[in-house]
Amino acid sequence: MLELFLAELKRSWIEFTRYPVDAIAGIFITISVFYGLFLSARYIAGPNLQFGDRLDAIVVGYVLWTLVVFIVANITAVLQVEIQTGTLEQVILTPFGISRVFLARAIASLTINIIVITGILLLILLLTGRQLYFPPALILPLLTVLLGAYGLAFIMASLALLFKRIQQLLGLTQFALLFLLAVPSETWSGTLWIVRLLLPMTMGAGILRDLMARNLSLNFVEISLAFLNGLGYLVLGLIVFRRAEVEAKRRGILGGY
Rank of each mutant, 00 (worst) to 15 (best):
L9E: 09
L9V: 03
R11G: 10
S12E: 15
E15Y: 12
R18L: 02
D22P: 03
G26Y: 00
I27G: 11
I27M: 15
I29S: 11
I29W: 07
T30E: 14
T30Q: 15
T30V: 11
S32N: 09
S32V: 10
G36K: 11
G36M: 06
F38A: 05
F38T: 08
S40C: 02
R42M: 04
P47G: 14
N48W: 01
F51V: 13
G52F: 01
G52L: 03
D53W: 07
R54P: 00
L55H: 00
L55Q: 04
V59Y: 00
V60M: 02
Y62K: 05
L64K: 02
L67C: 00
I71L: 08
A73I: 09
I75C: 02
L79C: 00
L79A: 02
V81H: 12
E82R: 08
I83H: 02
Q84L: 08
T85L: 14
T85C: 05
G86A: 09
E89A: 05
L93C: 09
P95L: 05
F96P: 05
I98P: 09
R100Y: 11
V101F: 05
V101M: 04
V101W: 08
V101L: 07
A104E: 07
R105M: 00
I107G: 03
I112R: 00
N113H: 12
N113W: 05
I114K: 04
I115P: 02
G119I: 06
I120K: 00
L121G: 01
L122H: 10
L123E: 11
L123V: 15
L126Y: 13
L126N: 08
L127W: 06
R130F: 00
L132Y: 10
P136M: 04
P136S: 01
L138Y: 11
L138Q: 14
I139D: 08
I139W: 09
L140N: 11
L143T: 14
T144Y: 03
T144H: 01
T144K: 01
T144S: 11
G148S: 02
G148I: 00
Y150T: 10
A153W: 00
A157E: 07
L159T: 11
A160I: 11
F163P: 10
F163Q: 11
K164T: 12
L169R: 06
T173G: 15
A176T: 12
L177T: 06
L178T: 08
F179R: 05
L180N: 03
A182N: 13
A182G: 13
E186Q: 15
T187D: 09
W188I: 07
W193H: 12
V195Q: 08
R196L: 05
R196V: 10
R196N: 13
L197N: 14
L198V: 14
L199Y: 06
M201T: 08
M201E: 07
G204D: 02
I207D: 08
R209Y: 03
L211K: 05
L211Y: 00
R214Y: 15
R214A: 13
N215W: 03
N215M: 04
L216P: 01
F220K: 11
E222F: 01
S224K: 01
L228P: 01
N229I: 04
Y233R: 04
V235P: 05
V235A: 13
L236A: 15
I239C: 04
I239F: 05
I239L: 13
V240C: 10
E245K: 07
V246W: 13
E247C: 07
A248P: 11
G252M: 10
G256H: 06
Y257H: 10
